[in-house]
Nucleic acid binder design. Structure first.
Lengths: 178, 178
DNA sequence: GTCTATACCCAGATAGAC
DNA sequence: GTCTATCTGGGTATAGAC
């Protein structure tokens, strides 16, 4: 049951965010009672943390794998962006907001560490090996910018999600001005 | 009282988002009772809409003014971005999420129209008059990308907010690659 | 492990007195 | 216009039986 709860919770947290997802709702989908969840988890916050821990592990592994497979800088970044979009159909901004404003600060800090290691680091590694980057561009900053852009296309509902993300990343590569 | 309620509601909606702001909280700050609010507004959703209507009007006017004052493309865009950052200390993403997932679809549509007219249009006008934009770049798309970036620096808590936003916009102008 | 029952709190909204 | 009282419904969490 433990893993099933995490499965359902992951989906709902992704779609609705932390506060708009209730333990009742999770229980209902699983066909169990709401208090039952409290046999498996101390409280709602630890469910959230465990969901994110599991997800981060998976994402970190897959991002690193993908970056090894592709050859050029642009291909690596695009492949990683597409993966995040497909695995993560929700806004990272919502997540960040939840983390900062709803969870207690101890949990928040642990979640930020998860993100740095699993999401940010694979991208930073790719940037570190690329020679064609403009000298005035700071890699840390650029990776953060890239995440902002990718995040915006995670919960976009339309059919053209993937092409939009591609167009966005290309704009990120080459800018708007001549 | 009507305007006072909107003042307080604006601040709270900005900081906390729609669902995490309660009518009780608004009332308490104003020193009135919670049901009193329902004399002035039909329900919570109309408060949100009126807050956004008032804000959009102001923002639309000021963005247009600012774009007229500055001379170069880069200066115009930066001035408008700084204004949004200073007037809007909250995440537009949170707002978009609230609009799409919490409000009823009729209200959502009206709010989207507000945004198109007051926020997007002034930027589109600036892009329309600029000759240095790369031919493969679509203005609509670029403006949306710019909003994504600006939004990310609205609720950033740090001291370096303004410099970060500037750096971000510059990356948007020139890209990461040579 | 899963259940029922329930405590407690907070939300949005309405009725009706003043 | 603002109040008190209250309805209804939702939330997290705990106690204790099976």
């Amino acid at each position: 049951m433990y893993e099933e709860i995490l499965d359902v919770a992951e989906e709902l947290f992704m779609k609705q965010g932390y506060s708009d997802t209730s333990t009742r709702q999770i229980a209902k989908i699983l066909g169990i009672t709401q208090p039952n969840i409290y046999y498996h988890f101390k409280n709602k916050e630890t469910i959230y943390y465990q969901v994110m821990r599991r997800l981060s592990n998976e994402v970190g592994k897959n991002l690193t794998e993908l970056s090894a497979k592709a050859t050029s800088f642009e291909e690596k970044i695009l492949a990683m962006a597409f993966y995040l979009q497909q695995r993560h159909p929700f806004s990272l901004f919502m997540m960040m907001h939840d983390i900062q404003h709803t969870l207690n600060s101890e949990t928040a800090e642990k979640m930020f560490t998860l993100w740095s290691d699993s999401y940010k680091k694979p991208f930073l590694d790719v940037f570190a090996n690329e020679k064609q980057i403009r000298i005035s561009v700071d890699s840390e900053f650029a990776v953060r910018q890239l995440f902002i852009l990718i995040s915006a296309y995670l919960d976009s509902p339309e059919e053209r999600r993937k092409e939009n993300l591609k167009q966005s990343v290309q704009l990120f590569f080459y800018g708007v001005l001549n």
